[in-house]
Design a protein around this nucleic acid. Sequence first.
DNA 1: CATGAATGAGGATTCATTCAT
DNA 2: AATGAATGAATCCTCATTCAT
Lengths: 201, 201, 201, 201
Amino acid sequence: MSSTGKIREPKQERSIETKNKIIAAGYEVFSTVGYYGTNTAEIAKVAGVSTGIVYGYFRDKRDILLCVLKIYIETITKPIYEITENLASPVDVNALVKSVVDEVIKIHEENARLHNTLHSLAASDDGVEAQFSELEKDITVRISKSLTDCGLNSEHMFEKVHLAMNMLQSFAHEYVFDKHQYIDYAAMRKTVCSMIAGLFA
Amino acid sequence: MSSTGKIREPKQERSIETKNKIIAAGYEVFSTVGYYGTNTAEIAKVAGVSTGIVYGYFRDKRDILLCVLKIYIETITKPIYEITENLASPVDVNALVKSVVDEVIKIHEENARLHNTLHSLAASDDGVEAQFSELEKDITVRISKSLTDCGLNSEHMFEKVHLAMNMLQSFAHEYVFDKHQYIDYAAMRKTVCSMIAGLFA
Amino acid sequence: MSSTGKIREPKQERSIETKNKIIAAGYEVFSTVGYYGTNTAEIAKVAGVSTGIVYGYFRDKRDILLCVLKIYIETITKPIYEITENLASPVDVNALVKSVVDEVIKIHEENARLHNTLHSLAASDDGVEAQFSELEKDITVRISKSLTDCGLNSEHMFEKVHLAMNMLQSFAHEYVFDKHQYIDYAAMRKTVCSMIAGLFA
Amino acid sequence: MSSTGKIREPKQERSIETKNKIIAAGYEVFSTVGYYGTNTAEIAKVAGVSTGIVYGYFRDKRDILLCVLKIYIETITKPIYEITENLASPVDVNALVKSVVDEVIKIHEENARLHNTLHSLAASDDGVEAQFSELEKDITVRISKSLTDCGLNSEHMFEKVHLAMNMLQSFAHEYVFDKHQYIDYAAMRKTVCSMIAGLFA
DNA sequence: CATGAATGAGGATTCATTCAT
DNA sequence: AATGAATGAATCCTCATTCAT
């Protein structure tokens, strides 16, 4: 994105810094008030730059969002891959699941608000949707491969990993917001872990 | 909602019809282009009424959305409750899960787009979020009770039902849109069924 | 006003009653929230009639205002004329001024809010302005005649009466609202009386 | 006013110029067609700017009016204070009154239409009313002080000055519009002058 | 006569984006 | 590269007035 026409592809250090400030500001503002609750002037203000220059680095408001999304994806995948790609063989499934669950919750705690904003947009923005789809695919394929590499073979690996990912995500989401009073989230956490572990037993 | 001040509480048949036309139009337009992509003029046009009258029946655009949400919730819960509240005892868990999965998929096929719009808004609108939360609670509690009544006792019933609901929802969502080419959704469906059934074994 | 086209000139008792109810409602609502703060639906509601029928009796919203204005003028002039047209000869100027001042204040106490609304409109509505002009002329001429009839002759009678009227009106207005804390309105009242009396000495 | 949130506090010359153009346009348009007869688009058009930028400098339409009011108050008070604060002692009351009356009429000739608009609003807008009240107080107190400083002592100074101000204002208003054909305004002017002078004899 | 549902033009305001400096 | 003033289309909502019943 942001490469046609008069959009600057910043090479100089100061430029890169400015662009990053804008992305960081977008991250913050989008998190707080959502995409539609944000205006570019606010992003510029938080970034400490002028409104005009924003359009020097980004095609439009959506382009900022897309960049924020990219950063977000890197942020959330990195720690997970760190775990799954440094597995000792043979895999201790229970331990693995536990550490992944812990990590996903931790990530969610830090990014839940932006996650909300981003997911909202996926519903109406094909570009965002596509990136999320790709993200899911990436996670699924990469983790599947890691597991297979460690000797954890099984039929329908993709489907299982994907299901685990889905479960974990919806669980983490609720968990972080402590959404329902009548739910015992500690118990639920245990159930989630055992269900996921069960998939790969 | 929509009961204070100058909002018409429709009594006459013509009124009720008009209100319903507007809700139906909202349903359609919100589904198609999302909440922020919709303007009231468009809703009025689709409903075949003037822009003014929309505000005779609804406080504002959001109020329409809230009414659509209410209808949506009724639409999706009714068939599920029909199944879970007419169970023969002892329960055939596998058959039950299968029929519920079938039903949820069917509902999703018919309402997926609106579902998207609505869920998007939950992220930024507390009223919508609250209704969804209540919906989840309602489903969880009601189904838990039905199962218990049929002798299907188990520890952490709420948590299990809730997890099942979450799984099913995220699955149905993907399934309907056939989101990922590399996923064998038939296989995934089986796995989902067996996981859910496993919860209540 | 209200005589061309399809406007009903009510003859039947019930009709007259309805028309009067609307005027009374206009009086009340215009007083409270001003002309621009009022909508016809509100007037109809206060009058206890439907919005539609208002246009059976009045050409438009302004027409209601004009009728209210007419009533207002009758209300405020009647008690003044009662005093000035029942004078004993020779006139006790001081007593006359005192009783007129008392009466004007009393009238103002009861009608100050509507007075405000009406005067506001005179600035932008020629019809209202014309009626106020006529009102002033009427009062001036009629009182001048009364005074002359009682032997109170003087040069520039019209101008003096007019000035007295103006003074009295602006005074009464302030007095009723007790507008300025730093003003001793009792003292001011005395000064006003003596100034007016001085005019006719 | 106009200092919170995103209202520009103009620093650059271009900004100040634009803001002044808008105020001037407001002055003109409000004068001509009144507050309710004006729309922001018209003000922008007369100012030669876009509708959007109006909201860069003013919170809303009323805020423009308030600024216009402020200018108006400065415009009308300045020449009066110039007279009353440069009095030679002992004061020639008749000459003073004459020059003030002349000045007030002159001011009114130039601002009568806006005066109408502004006074209209005082009836329904507390902010406007408050500013007018303050204006009256200011004039009263300041002129009273000037007179006292020049040895023109008298009981109830405030009340007298206030009355004089009121008389003068209502007189000037009629005079400028030559409201009543049957009034000899030259004669009335003399009477006004002598009444006011009489107050301070 | 009466109802109140329906109309639709009009108006205030916002905000993504452009442009002069 | 940067600024921030300026643009103007777009949108929500109101309300005087009309009309079908």
